[in-house]
């Protein structure tokens, strides 16, 4: 086994998730184009989902199905925590919804203002 395989898969997922979050956030904060900002949001969202999944993963664990392969007494240590996975499903749906609304906004903003530059949407301030 080399060094890489020593690292638990969940940690890799966690780190890449966190990285995605940062990249997504960077995108949201720096990209002037609204579409790019939405992409940034999507990246961030995905990153969060990866973090969530990684939290519940038990290295070498099995699917959280209680059957003969996994005795109940041993289940806590052996199976992957099913709750984060369930949560992620919900979160993905919600993320999708938000992204959709954002895109709808982008469309409407473009129709109304003929631009997608967020810098030009500053008329209400102070």
């Amino acid at each position: 086994m080399n060094m890489l395989t020593d690292i638990p898969i969940s940690l890799i997922v966690l780190c890449s998730g966190l990285g995605l979050i940062l990249i997504g956030m960077w995108g949201m904060l720096t990209q002037r184009n609204i579409i790019r900002m939405i992409i940034g949001f999507s990246l961030m969202d995905t990153g969060i989902h990866m973090v969530m999944v990684s939290i519940g993963y038990v290295t070498g664990g099995t699917a959280p199905i209680i059957n003969d392969a996994v005795p109940i007494a041993d289940a806590v240590n052996r199976v992957v925590d099913p709750v984060p996975s369930a949560l992620v499903l919900t979160a993905i749906v919600i993320g999708l919804g938000v992204t959709a609304v954002m895109l709808a906004f982008a469309v409407r903003i473009f129709k109304a203002r003929n631009t997608l530059n967020i810098d030009e949407c500053t008329e209400s301030k102070w």
């Binding site: 979050i21 956030m25 949201m28 609204i34 900002m37 949001f41 961030m44 969202d45 969060i48 973090v51 969530m52 939290i55 984060p84 949560l87 979160a91 938000v98 609304v101 954002m102 906004f105 982008a106 409407r108 903003i109 109304a112 203002r113 967020i118 949407c121 500053t122 008329e123 209400s124």
Partner: peptide, 27 residues
């Protein structure tokens, strides 16, 4: 109207970041 949409978009961006952090904290 353009200004409402712009304001709405700012609202979405800000709240979505906030709720992303909330979700992370939850997990």
């Amino acid at each position: 109207s353009g200004s409402v949409l712009a304001a709405g978009f700012k609202y979405i961006v800000a709240t979505s970041i906030a709720s992303a952090f909330f979700l992370l904290g939850t997990i």
